[in-house]
Lab assay of single mutants.
Amino acid sequence: MQIFVKGLTGKTTTLEVEPSDTIENVKAKIQDKTGLPPDQQRLIFAGKQLEDGRTLSDYNIQKESTLHIVWR
Rank of each mutant, 00 (worst) to 15 (best):
Q31K: 11
N60W: 04
T34C: 08
R72H: 14
E18T: 14
W71K: 10
V5C: 03
N60D: 08
K11P: 10
D32W: 12
E24L: 14
E24V: 06
Q41L: 15
V70L: 11
K27D: 00
E16I: 11
Y59A: 02
V26Y: 00
T55K: 10
Y59M: 03
V17K: 00
R54A: 08
T9Q: 12
E16K: 08
R42F: 12
A28W: 09
A46L: 12
L50D: 00
T14K: 09
E24P: 03
K33M: 13
N60K: 07
S57G: 11
E24R: 14
Q31D: 03
Q49C: 11
T34Q: 04
G53A: 10
Y59V: 02
I30D: 00
K11Y: 13
G53R: 08
Q2N: 10
G47W: 04
S57R: 12
K48M: 14
T9Y: 15
L8V: 11
R54L: 10
G35Q: 05
N60C: 05
E18Q: 07
E64V: 03
Q62T: 14
I69E: 03
I69P: 01
L67T: 01
K27V: 02
Q41D: 02
T14F: 06
K48S: 09
E64N: 14
H68R: 08
V5M: 04
V26I: 10
I23C: 02
D52S: 07
D32P: 03
T34D: 03
Q41I: 15
E51N: 06
T13W: 15
L8R: 10
T22R: 08
Q31A: 14
L8D: 06
A46I: 05
L36A: 06
R42A: 10
Q41S: 07
T66E: 07
D58S: 12
K6M: 11
I3R: 01
K63V: 07
T34Y: 11
E16N: 13
V5T: 03
T55D: 03
S20P: 03
S65E: 05
A46T: 05
T13H: 15
F45H: 07
I23A: 02
S65Y: 07
Y59H: 03
F45W: 08
Y59D: 01
A28Y: 12
Q62H: 11
I30G: 01
L36P: 03
S20M: 10
K63R: 11
R72K: 13
G35P: 02
T55H: 06
T22G: 03
K27M: 05
G53V: 06
Q41T: 15
I44M: 13
I3P: 00
S20I: 06
Q2H: 12
L50W: 01
L56S: 00
T14V: 13
L43H: 01
V26C: 03
S20Y: 10
G47C: 06
Q31G: 09
T55Y: 05
I30H: 02
G53Y: 09
P38W: 13
T55A: 06
E24K: 11
L8C: 11
P19N: 05
M1W: 07
K11W: 15
W71V: 14
V17A: 04
I3H: 01
E64T: 05
V5P: 01
Q62S: 12
I30A: 02
V70G: 06
S57Q: 12
G53I: 06
T66C: 05
K63L: 06
Q40R: 13
G53D: 12
K48Q: 14
S20F: 12
K29W: 04
D39H: 13
G10F: 09
N25H: 11
I69W: 05
L15Y: 08
S57I: 08
P38L: 11
Y59S: 02
I69G: 03
I3K: 00
D21P: 00
Q62W: 07
M1F: 15
E16W: 15
P19E: 06
T9E: 11
G47S: 05
P19L: 10
I23T: 04
E64P: 03
E24T: 07
T66Y: 07
T22F: 08
K29R: 08
Q40M: 12
T22P: 04
P37W: 10
V17Q: 01
D32C: 08
M1I: 11
D21W: 11
H68Q: 11
L15Q: 01
D32T: 12
R72N: 14
K48N: 11
T12G: 06
L43F: 03
K48Y: 08
K33F: 11
P38D: 04
G7S: 12
V26L: 13
Q40F: 11
G10T: 08
R42D: 10
K33W: 10
E51R: 07
I23M: 03
T12E: 07
L8W: 13
T13R: 06
I3Q: 01
L36H: 08
D32V: 12
Q49W: 14
E16F: 13
A28C: 07
L43P: 01
L56G: 00
E64D: 14
D21K: 01
A46W: 07
L8N: 07
Y59C: 02
K63C: 06
E24S: 12
N25W: 10
S65A: 09
Q49P: 11
V26Q: 00
R42H: 13
L43V: 05
K27W: 05
R42S: 10
D52E: 10
